[in-house]
Design a binder for these strands. Structure first.
Lengths: 210, 210, 210, 210
DNA sequence: AATTAATCGAGACGGTACGTCATGTCTTGAT
DNA sequence: ATCAAGACATGACGTACCGTCTCGATTAATT
């Protein structure tokens, strides 16, 4: 993970204090939980961390970057374990997804963070590297295992799979304002498994129809 | 549809001018397309509509309410036609969804609007009545037809179905920044059809296993 | 006194309700005492009088006019009694002046009313007719009596006399924020008497010096 | 003179820019002359000084404070020269008073400034320190010289003297809307001299009557 | 040890939009 | 033509927050 706060440059002069990084992290995460993203003020972060605002902007170019940087850890997917079956692997993944998206710090900040993400290409890259790419790798790994087991005959579209796995949870949580537990995760995993399997059958059928 | 700008009660006093409603609508929609949601200024709306800012705030409590009110038309689902098959009906629905979410006014405003939606309960109610409920009705109608045709033996969860139908498109468009066409719609429709069908088989199987 | 609220014009249609004049007067005076001039809102007057704002503006062209109109009674000088001596007459006048300027309704509104007076020629005329002219007449009467008694040999400048009589009280009350009682009035009366008398001596002396 | 814009304490942080103080002063004084007090807009001051509105409100709590602060220089009295006689000293003072009150920046702003002064205790203190106290000192100096010369046998009331010297000019200029020149100043000086002298005679007489 | 140069906390800065407020006018339908 | 109710345009207000900049004071690595 390439950190926003690691600047490439200066060789001499006073080095940046490590304990500022830590204090800012503490302040940001606490304030996120207390007031959410929108009401989180850079002044407040600086004050709580007993740090000058300049120290903040020396490390992160914007409020969104600061927050995203510190939520990345909570947002990044875990490596998907091999359970022996496609449905099992998918269930592990969806449970991980739901766990991250319902995290007390992540949940209230997610929609606003997405808004900033859309606006700022630098944030997009950060998010992509920390979340999108690992998630796609995970999907790919699961799919490859399923292919090698013979559960699938061909690889599904990894990008679309990401949308299948993440989208319903996001809408479920934020638009419908429902709660999500392991049953929700399992239901989603089954949906995806069904879609992957069925799409093969249809393709075969369609090929056969010609 | 219960409008934000329709006040409930009084009979006396000067009634709110219809032509202001119209001018504001025109101004809002044009500015949305020209500059998007974030850069849309209340001052600019008022100026373009040749209206005082007070007239705006008398009708809508916030910028978000103003915009949502006027995008509702573009966001509300069409009644789903009966194509004779479940997959056909679903394809009509997903195409409609994608058409709405890629609308030039809707697309750039959607993430920010969602952010406000999450914050403001009044907006949530407005959105629910204008979008969520009709969309759920549409899903229910499609599912009921499928049941009566014998394609499904039992009704799926309508709320979850909404998440299945909307979530992937949202993520696909805004997180992955991909484009969506009719092929995307069809793929999604097939996913949902597969999930609905498969979930029945699994349930049967699970019942049989006991 | 020509009232602002007597419009010259309409012959036909519904006549203006007298009881509105009364209700507005009551509301204005009470609000003046309660919140002063600056925080007195036209909306509040209308609401308290249970009257439409249009009825207000049909009678008075501005807030300042409305207030001035209703304070005129408290501002207008009483006819000066003949006490037999110049100093006695002046003391009656200064006591009257101080009584009016310390009136609970007049005192807090006076500086702001003066500001409006400076701005608005129509108010100036109203004030002139109701206060300035009567006051000058009073001064003239007192001076003429003094001349006829032989206390003065020539008439003083009536305008300047008004400034002599009013100015110190205004500054005393509003700039220095002191309280004024009858002793203050007497002191002022003596000052003016001294000035009038002395100016004659000086003039004689100056004439004699030539 | 204790300035509104001088904050008492802190040693750290970026100090307030001197050149902003200067630019704001320039802008305020020019706009005062161009449009007067009532039509002077804080936005306009900020724009003309090329300064953010926040910088204004950081220094002065209100428009009235801003203006008063910058007019103080024009309002403060000059030290009264010793001309050798009481009447001469008083004429110097009254000419100074009239000169200040007819100053092109001061004259049109004075009534409105007085209004704000009455409302705001902080402004009162500022005005008191910069004007009232020096003016009273000047009066006292003049009176003491007169006493030491034998022109007066006892000190007059300094506060009342201020009212005598200032009040008639204010009323003459703003209520009567007359013009004031040196003749006016001399007339006023003679009035005050007469009052001071006469009050002694009366007191003697009253003492003698007992 | 002295020098150098980037850091530090504090907080002022320009800019920009916000939502509120009050005035005086205008528009209903009813009297 | 009036009435009460209340919407209207206008235009200033004071506040808020962002991201930048400046101040004098550290603080390490380099001379």
């Amino acid at each position: 993970m390439s950190s926003v706060s690691e600047s490439g440059g200066p060789r001499s002069g006073r080095p940046r204090s490590k304990c500022i990084d830590h204090a800012v992290r503490e302040a940001t995460l606490h304030l996120l939980e207390e007031v959410g993203y929108a009401r989180l003020r850079m002044d407040a972060v600086a004050a709580r961390a007993k740090v000058g605002k300049a120290a903040l902007y020396r490390r992160w170019p914007s409020k969104a970057a600061l927050v995203l940087q510190h939520l990345i850890g909570d947002l990044s997917p875990r490596a998907p374990a091999d359970t022996g079956t496609l449905r099992g692997d998918l269930r592990v993944m969806t449970r991980d997804t739901i766990a991250r998206m319902t995290h007390p710090r992540v949940h209230p900040a997610l929609p606003e963070l997405l808004t900033e993400l859309v606006r700022d290409p630098a944030l997009q890259r950060l998010f992509e590297e920390a979340c999108l790419i690992p998630e796609r790798d995970a999907v790919r790994a699961v799919a490859e295992r399923a292919v090698s087991r013979g559960e699938l005959s061909r690889m599904p579209d990894v990008g679309w799979a990401y949308a299948q796995l993440t989208g319903p949870v996001f809408v479920w949580l934020h638009l419908l304002r429902e709660t999500a537990d392991e049953a929700t995760a399992d239901r989603l995993a089954d949906d995806v498994a069904a879609a992957w399997t069925a799409s093969e059958e249809w393709q075969e059928r369609e090929v056969g129809e010609r």
